[in-house]
Design a protein around this nucleic acid. Structure first.
Length: 632
RNA sequence: GGGCACGUAGCGCAACUUGGAUAGCGCAUCUGGCUUCGGACCAGAUGGUUGCGGGUUCAAAUCCCGUCGUGCCCGCCA
C-alpha cells in the first residue's frame, strides 16, 4: 500500500511523462529528472507543482508559459480519474490541484486501517541491517556526546525497522584499551570506594589517574597492567574484564532509562581470542590487502599499502604516510586490524565463532540482550546486508581506510554496504567533553546523560505545576522529559557540530519535543470529550471537507511514507523531527480554528482527522524514541 | 603541507544530493488573543547583499573555480 501523496505524485509524473513522450520526443527526460521537477508549492499555487516546462521551453525554443498551456490543453481529458482534479499554469509552472474530498477520504481511511503501521514502508524487506552505537569505552559514564551517538543509532535502527529491514542493534565494547588499564590501576591503587553510580565513579577515577601519568612509576605500572590484560589468562585480565562489565552494567541502566536498547554487545577481547582476527588477516593477505613489510620504517609489521588506495578518494592521492599498520612488529594488532576482522564478520566475509550469553534477559522492548563471552550459545548475528556505524566525524579517515580495504580486496560491493554515519561531536562553550581530562565534569553541571535526564524531568514537573491544570503522572512526566531531550538532540543534521547549552537543549517551547507531545495530548483530550474513539471510515460524510486547515493537515499526514523513506535512506533522524513539527503545527492551527466536538454533521469527519493525526504523529514520534502521552 | 566538514536574520536550524515562483521554521523582540474541545498554544509585525570574489545559465543558497574564517583528521593510540 502506498500513501495517497505518493500516488498523487506518481499520477502527475505519469501525466508529464506521457505528454513529453507524445509531444516532445526529442527531449529525453529521465524518470528522476521529472520527479525532481515536482515539488510542493505554497498553498495558493496548488497541491503539487512541476517546473518541467522550463526545460522543455529551453529545448524547443518556446516560452515556458506557452509550453505549459500546451501541456494543460493536451492532458486535460486525462484528469479526474485520480487525485489530480485540475492543472493550472503560472508563469510556466504546472500547478496541480487535488480532488480534496477523494484525497482526504483515502488518506484518512488508510491511516485508520494501517494503524501502527501507517507511514511505514517495505523498501528494506528481506534485508538485514546491523547498526553499531554508541560503543562507549567501558570505564566512564555516558556523557551527552555519547548520548547523542546512542540516540542517532537508536533512531536510525527504528527507521530501518519501519522500512522493513531486519535490524540488529549492536554495541561494541573496547575492553582492551589503555583507558581500561588506567581505570583498573586506579581501582586497585587509589584506595577509593564507589560512592555513586559505578560508571560515574569509575570515570572520576580515570580522570584522577590521568593527572598522575606524569609520574613515571605510575605509567610503568599501567603499561605492565595493559600488557597482562592483552595477553589474557591472568588475574589482571580477569579483573579488567570484570571492571569493564560492572561499568557496562551501569551504562546499561542509563540506556534503559532513555529507552535505548541493543540486541548484542560485542567485546573486543572476544574478537581476538576467538581467532577471528587471525582468520581475517589470512584473508586480507590472500586478497592482497595486507603485506608484510621487510624493511624501512615499518619493518616487521603487517601493513596495508596506502598507494593501493589511490583513486578511491582524494585523501589517498598524496598520502602523508605510505602504509597503515595492521599488526605491529611485536605481534599485537592495531585497532584497524580488529575493526577489519569485525567488519568482515558483519558483512559475511568471515564466519563468526563467538559464543553468546544473556546479559539481560528481557529489556523493556521485550527482547533479550546478548553479549559475547567465553562460553554460551552459538548464535549468528553477523552476515548483514548493510553495516551502519554511528561514529563521530573525527573518525572519518580511519573509517574510510576500513571501507577502502574492502575495495582493494575486490569487494567493492561490500565497501558500498559499509556506511559511516558521521556526526559532529558535542562540545561546551568552555571546551571539550573529554573523558580523559574530565571536561564532562563541568562547572555548573555534570554533563552526564543521567544528570541531564534527571534535570529534564524536574523541569517537566515544575512546568506542570506552574500551569493551571496539574495533569500527568510521574511516568508521563518522564516520557515528556525523554521526548524533550531526544527531540533536541535529533532535530538537526547529525553532521552539524553542536555547542551544547543546557537551557536551550531543555527548551519546552516552539520547535521542541514537548510541543509535539502537547499537541498529541490535546488531541487526546478532544477524543475524550467526544467519547467516540472509534469512527467507521466508510460512514463518514466527506462532504464537509474544505480547503482549509483540515485539508492542509491531511496533506501533511499523507506525506508520511515518503518522509520516512527519505530519512531512512539518508540516515537522518532530523528529517523525522522536522516532519513531527509540521504535523504538530498543522494540528495546532486546525484545532484553534475548527470546532470538533459538537460540530454536528461534520463531527465524525473531524474526529477522524484527530484520530489520524494522533496515529500518524504517534508512529513517527516512536521512530525517534518519543512516547506520546495522554496528559502532560 | 595534504584532506574532510561547516559558514544562511541577534541566536539555533531548514532548503544544497536532483538549479526554478516572494529563501522557510523556531527562539528572542514588539502588538494582539484564555467565562468558548488544555495558553507547553494561536494570530500579526520587525529582522536576510545565503562569508567574500568570479564563472556557467533564461534562472544560483544550490553547480564550477578561487578566496577567507571555524572545527576536525593525517600515530607500530584506540
Amino acid at each position: 500500500m502506498s500513501c495517497s501523496y505518493k500516488v498523487a505524485k506518481d499520477e502527475l509524473y505519469a501525466l508529464i511523462d506521457k505528454w513529453v513522450r507524445d509531444s516532445y520526443p526529442q527531449v529525453q527526460l529521465r524518470k528522476e529528472e521529472i520527479y525532481a521537477s515536482i515539488s510542493i508549492p505554497k498553498t495558493e499555487f496548488g497541491d503539487l507543482s512541476s517546473s518541467v516546462c522550463m526545460r522543455i521551453a529551453k529545448a524547443s525554443g518556446k516560452k515556458p508559459y506557452d509550453v505549459a498551456n500546451e501541456m494543460i490543453d493536451q492532458t486535460r481529458k486525462g484528469l479526474g480519474k485520480g487525485y489530480i482534479k485540475e492543472l493550472g499554469n503560472a508563469n510556466g509552472y504546472i500547478n496541480a490541484s487535488f480532488d480534496e474530498k477523494r484525497y482526504v477520504k483515502d488518506t484518512l481511511k488508510e491511516v485508520i486501517e494501517l494503524g501502527d503501521k501507517y507511514g511505514f514502508s517495505t523498501v528494506g524487506s528481506g534485508k538485514k541491517a546491523m547498526v553499531e552505537y554508541p560503543s562507549v569505552n567501558p570505564n566512564k559514564a555516558w556523557h551527552i556526546g555519547h548520548l547523542l551517538n546512542a540516540l542517532i543509532g537508536d533512531s536510525i535502527s527504528n527507521m530501518l525497522s519501519a522500512c522493513g529491514y531486519s535490524v540488529n542493534r549492536e554495541d561494541y565494547i573496547d575492553d582492551l584499551g589503555i583507558q581500561v588499564a588506567e581505570s583498573l590501576w586506579g581501582y586497585l591503587n587509589l584506595g577509593n570506594k564507589p560512592d555513586k553510580k559505578f560508571d560515574t565513579w569509575l570515570g572520576e577515577q580515570y580522570v584522577t589517574v590521568n593527572r598522575m601519568l606524569s609520574d613515571e612509576k605510575v605509567k610503568k605500572e599501567i603499561d605492565a597492567l595493559m600488557k597482562r590484560m592483552e595477553e589474557g589468562k591472568s588475574a589482571e585480565a580477569d579483573n579488567g574484564r570484570k571492571l569493564a562489565e560492572d561499568c557496562v552494567k551501569a551504562q546499561f541502566e542509563t540506556a534503559s532509562a532513555y529507552g535505548i536498547y541493543h540486541d548484542v554487545m560485542m567485546w573486543e577481547s572476544d574478537i581476538v581470542r576467538t581467532g577471528m582476527l587471525e582468520q581475517a588477516m589470512k584473508i586480507a593477505v590472500e586478497k592482497g590487502a595486507a603485506v608484510k613489510a621487510d624493511e624501512g620504517k615499518y619493518s616487521g609489521c603487517m601493513v596495508v599499502d596506502l598507494k593501493m588506495l589511490k583513486g578511491i578518494s582524494k585523501e589517498f592521492d598524496n598520502p602523508n604516510e605510505e602504509s597503515k599498520v595492521l599488526i605491529r612488529s611485536n605481534g599485537t594488532a592495531t585497532y584497524l586490524a580488529k575493526d577489519l576482522a569485525f567488519h568482515m564478520w558483519k558483512l559475511g566475509l568471515l564466519k563468526g565463532s563467538f559464543r553468546y550469553h544473556m546479559f539481560a534477559e528481557i529489556q523493556e522492548d521485550g527482547k533479550p540482550l546478548y553479549s559475547t563471552g567465553i562460553s554460551g550459545e552459538s548464535i549468528e548475528f553477523g552476515g548483514a546486508d548493510i553495516a551502519i556505524n554511528v561514529i563521530g566525524s573525527a573518525q572519518r579517515y580511519p573509517q574510510l581506510i576500513l571501507k577502502s580495504m574492502f575495495s582493494i580486496m575486490g569487494r567493492q560491493d561490500l565497501a558500498e554496504r559499509l556506511v559511516h554515519v558521521a556526526y559532529g561531536e558535542i562540545s561546551l562553550k568552555e571546551g571539550s567533553l573529554s573523558g580523559r581530562s574530565g571536561g564532562w565534569m563541568g562547572k555548573d553541571h555534570t554533563y552526564t546523560a543521567d544528570s541531564l535526564l534527571e534535570d529534564a524531568r524536574d523541569r517537566v514537573v515544575k512546568k506542570a505545576e506552574e500551569s493551571k491544570k496539574k495533569v500527568g503522572t510521574a511516568d508521563e512526566a518522564m516520557a515528556v522529559a525523554i521526548g524533550a531531550i531526544r527531540f533536541a538532540f535529533l532535530r538537526t543534521n547529525p553532521e552539524k557540530k553542536i555547542i551544547f547549552e543546557w537551557d536551550k537543549a531543555l527548551s519546552f517551547e516552539g520547535s521542541s519535543g514537548p510541543y509535539c507531545m502537547y499537541m498529541y495530548a490535546r488531541a487526546n483530550s478532544i477524543l475524550e470529550k467526544a467519547m467516540a474513539k472509534k469512527v467507521e471510515p466508510d460512514k463518514i460524510d466527506f462532504g464537509h471537507v474544505e480547503r482549509g486547515y483540515d485539508f492542509e493537515l491531511v496533506k501533511s499526514i499523507g506525506k508520511a511514507q515518503e518522509v520516512l523513506e527519505k530519512a531512512a535512506s539518508e540516515y537522518r533522524p532530523d528529517i523525522i523531527a522536522e516532519y513531527l513539527m509540521e504535523l504538530s503545527s498543522g494540528f495546532s492551527k486546525f484545532y484553534e480554528n475548527t470546532k470538533v466536538v459538537g460540530s454536528g454533521e461534520a463531527e465524525q469527519y473531524r474526529i477522524a482527522i484527530v484520530i489520524s493525526f494522533m496515529q500518524a504523529i504517534g508512529n513517527f514520534m516512536r521512530l525517534l524514541g518519543m512516547n506520546p502521552v495522554a496528559k502532560m
